[in-house]
């Protein structure tokens, strides 16, 4: 069976993917956030498994993670919440989390659970490409999971080619040197970087993330890539608004 992420990447049009932290604002919000996002027309969802020490994240996601953990979110709790998710949700779902909680769960066991629940991919920022390639690739493949790699403006051309060669979903293009966090606009140097990557003609489609916060930033990046990911801005929205209003947020983006 073709992975849902790849099906989605084959469709026409630009994709909007949304990140949120599981267990935030309330422990039991996970499923209803996912359903509301799908209903609002989002193409793909990244479910954040919160970690005590999220070192690639800016203040917004740090705070949502701390709160989610305080609320009682754990790997087990998340898995029990997502147990029946495929009875009602069809769009691709990814889990984004740091490597340490996955090691504790057991990498293979974690992948197996993801497969059983119908999770399509993982984004693990602190699992290095080479370690994945040497040690974990076969496990991910066994459970039909796509592992998403990041590239940044500092990633060399050879390394991008290598990442592209072992990638089997999209490439997560980090918009600028920095941790996650909403930004207001993108400058020339970022646009040059987007253009440079677009010209490389990679096998894997690229989705741009980090700093996309509104219609303006969304529109300005999707000309260069297959889609964009919004994280911190959505987490901030959830802090102030009810889940029922998610459609307003999504409508304001596209």
């Amino acid at each position: 069976m073709m992975n849902r992420i790849n099906q989605k990447l084959h469709e026409e049009g630009k994709l909007l993917s949304i990140y949120f932290t599981a267990g935030y604002p309330k422990l039991k919000d996970t499923v209803s956030i996912i359903k509301n996002l799908e209903r609002a027309g989002v193409d793909m969802i990244e479910i954040g498994l919160p970690f005590s020490d999220p070192l690639a994240d800016g203040p917004t996601i740090q705070q949502s993670s701390t709160k989610a953990l305080k609320n009682g979110m754990t790997t087990e709790v998340l898995f029990s919440q997502l147990k029946d998710i495929r009875k009602s949700v069809n769009i691709p779902l990814l889990i984004m989390g740091y490597f340490n909680p996955i090691i504790q769960y057991g990498v293979e066991e974690f992948c197996n659970k993801c497969f059983e629940m119908g999770i399509d991919g993982l984004i693990i920022p602190d699992l290095p490409v080479d370690v994945y390639h040497e040690k974990y690739q076969t496990i991910f493949k066994k459970y039909n999971l796509v592992n998403i790699f990041l590239i940044t403006p500092q990633t060399s051309v050879e390394r991008i080619r290598f990442i592209d060669s072992i990638s089997n979903g999209f490439i997560y293009m980090v918009s600028s040197a920095g941790t996650t966090g909403a930004r207001d606009s993108f400058g020339e140097s970022q646009k040059d970087y987007f253009k440079k990557i677009a010209k490389m003609d990679l096998r894997s489609p690229q989705i741009i993330g980090f700093g996309i916060s509104n219609k303006k930033t969304f529109q300005s990046v999707i000309q260069y890539a297959k889609g964009a990911i919004i994280g911190s801005a959505f987490v901030k929205f959830l802090n102030k608004n009810s889940i029922g209003d998610i459609k307003n947020f999504i409508n304001s983006i596209r």
Partner: peptide, 12 residues
């Protein structure tokens, strides 16, 4: 050991 760093730190 090893270097379990996010891609953002890789080049450094």
């Amino acid at each position: 050991g090893g270097a379990f760093v996010p891609e953002m730190l890789y080049s450094n």
